[in-house]
Design a protein around this nucleic acid. Structure first.
Length: 564
RNA sequence: UGGCCCGUAGUUCAACUGGCGGAACGCCUGGUUUUGGUCCAGGAGGUUGCAGGUUCAAGUCCUGCCGGGCCAGCCA
């Protein structure tokens, strides 16, 4: 069983506390509704996973509902390709198909337009003919009040006429905008007459050419929440200063207090050794640093999926890290530990040698093949056993042999005896080198009496190593992955791309696998014993991606010696 | 020379209305083990950002500092 600690941490955080408080105070008559509102202009990454787990999790825990709503208010960057990938990624992450079709902010364009008309009629919005640069300039600064636009005092009638003309395409892009009329000297910059509508004569992937005016985030988001009767609108910290505006709109629109959604902000997720901004992720793809959005090194949901991360481990991770308002960066190792915990339970074991060197047993009967029984998953007896061919001609891992073994190296070296996993004890008697001095073959003798894995005389070996029989092996390749960026916080660097880890991908093309590796399905993750967890690529034949390595004490020992 | 938010082990989070500062990951030691994995037992690691104040008692309440984040897109 997965450890209870990682499986069932108590769920409590300031957001869940406030939801509970709202339920007991009857704020929304006990109703709980959330939403996950991605903009379809890129792929989802682990940062989004936190928000997805939060929003869908809270809805489930409190008997409510969570909408998937695409925030598609900007026709210039959005596309149906992203809608599909996001939808798919969410269902994969949650491990279930959504019970309701996704919603779109663009479906509310008509409602938002009507509400904007209401605002205009009440003298709370006006059409401004200033250009973007002038609006920005007159907005003032943090320490200086802004100035009113010369168009600020237009009458509701004039504003309405102009707004209708905007809607009907009577004005050029950028020639005017609709602004809320709040206060140009407000200490919160978002309240200094924010823009509600801008003109974009672009085709929208859902509404086509029906609209030429598009609502901004501030105008679209809260109103969409209200229309859907969302109760708890959860977003990340950078929207904190927008909350005042969010509430102002609902107030002006006279949305009844017991029906109003409330915005609560939490800290977004960051990880060491990677970047999570859409801009940088896009650049990694466009510059060809990675092979695509689903490159196994990418922190995208699709990248992690291809890498073999079980969705459950990501969910468990999100549950474990909790929700807070502190800006924080998680060690990527923590996520990896959740992946290992999950995979240790679920994955079958196989043997593979990814950097092979020949091992010949000199006293093995010529041509004899013997079948050895191996356990498929020691954590799950029902996974059964399989038989693996064994002979005097094997491959072992080059790393498992050292001619001059350093301290604490327990594996094979001249004169030393080790156990071959599920095989026999073998002792290295000689080695063969090529002209360059590279070891090409290791000669051993085996002890037939150690067939059971133990020596009848009670002598012990300090190591068990894995192997693959030569004549029956499957040949293939293995891709191992390392951090994409060398430093812990590449996002803090002036140019994160100077920090790229050039060795983030290594392809070993002469890997060999035991015959039962043929049973491993596409996208299935198996543990290659002593190496780590590996996921079979879905298209390339006999290519395995290393999901994550096993915890490796020998690596720690070497690291410690190095730093001494 | 503004406003808002945030400071608890290396990291990320806990600590009900003030009541003996805990956990996970990482690290170290030992045990088990036909994976240097898993599992089990134990350990190190904290001036709760700093300084005052209130109180029998402060991580928690008050004041002032310090450090970090966000905000001046017709992006979200």
């Amino acid at each position: 069983m997965t450890s209870d600690v990682q499986q069932q941490p108590k769920k409590a955080d300031f957001i869940r506390d406030s939801v509970k408080a709202d339920i007991s105070s009857g704020r929304h008559y006990g109703r709980v509704q959330t939403r996950f509102p991605p903009e379809p202009n890129g792929y989802l990454h682990v940062g989004h996973a936190k928000s997805i787990c939060l929003n869908f999790g809270i809805a489930e825990e409190f008997g409510g509902f969570c909408n998937l709503r695409f925030d598609d208010t900007n026709p210039e960057t959005e596309s149906v390709e992203f809608v599909n990938s996001i939808h798919h990624d969410i269902e994969w992450l949650l491990g279930k198909t959504l019970s309701k079709e996704p919603l779109f902010a663009s479906d509310y364009f008509e409602n938002m337009f009507e509400w904007a008309v209401t605002l205009i009629k009440r003298g709370k919005a006006y059409v401004d003919d200033q250009d973007a640069a002038t609006i920005s300039e007159l907005r003032g600064s943090y320490t200086q009040a802004g100035e009113n636009s010369p168009f600020r005092e237009r009458s509701p009638e004039e504003n309405l006429e102009l707004f209708l003309k905007m809607k009907d395409g009577g004005f050029a892009e950028g020639s005017c905008v609709l602004r809320a009329k709040i206060a140009m000297d407000h200490e919160n910059m978002n309240m200094r007459d924010p823009v509600l509508y801008r003109i974009r004569k672009k085709s929208h992937f859902r509404t086509g050419n029906k609209w030429v005016i598009y609502p901004t985030y501030d105008w679209a988001h809260g109103q969409s929440d209200a229309l859907e009767k969302v109760t708890h609108s959860l977003c990340t910290l950078e929207f904190e200063s927008h909350r005042l505006l969010y509430d102002w709109f609902l107030e002006q629109l006279e949305v009844p207090i017991d029906q109003r959604p409330y915005q609560t902000e939490f800290a977004r997720l960051n990880f060491t050794h990677t970047v999570l901004s859409k801009r940088l992720l896009k650049k990694l793809v466009e510059d060809g640093v990675v092979a695509g959005w689903d490159d196994p090194r990418m922190p995208t949901i699709s990248g992690l999926r291809r890498r073999g991360y079980p969705s459950k481990s990501i969910r468990n991770f999100c549950q474990h890290i909790g929700i807070a308002k502190t800006n924080s960066t998680h060690e990527i190792e923590l996520l990896e530990s959740f992946v290992r915990t999950e995979l240790n339970q679920s994955s079958q074991r196989r043997m593979a040698v990814i950097d092979p060197v020949r091992l010949t047993i000199t006293n093995w009967p010529e041509g004899k093949i013997e079948y050895r029984t191996a356990i498929n998953n020691p954590e799950n007896e029902s996974a059964g056993t399989r038989d693996i061919p064994f002979s005097g001609s094997l491959f072992i891992e080059r790393e498992d042999f050292k001619e001059d073994p350093p301290a604490k190296f327990f594996r094979l070296s001249p004169g030393r005896e080790v156990r071959l996993r599920y095989g026999y004890f073998v002792t290295c008697t000689d080695i063969v080198k090529d002209k360059s001095g590279k070891v090409v073959e290791i000669l051993c003798t085996y002890d037939p009496a150690t067939s059971g894995g133990k020596a009848p005389d009670g002598r012990k070996v300090k190591a068990t190593i894995h192997w693959v029989e030569q004549t029956n092996c499957i040949k293939g390749s293995v891709a191992t992955y390392d951090r994409l960026f060398s430093s812990e916080r590449p996002d803090l660097l002036d140019d994160p791309f100077e920090d790229l880890n050039k060795e983030s991908l290594e392809v070993l093309e002469s890997a060999v696998f035991e015959p039962a590796v043929a049973d491993v399905a596409s996208n299935e993750v198996v543990q290659f014993e002593r190496l780590g967890y590996f996921c079979r690529d879905e298209s390339q034949v006999n290519l395995f991606h290393r999901t994550v390595g096993l915890r490796d004490e020998w690596a720690n020992i070497q690291k410690r010696n190095k730093s001494k």
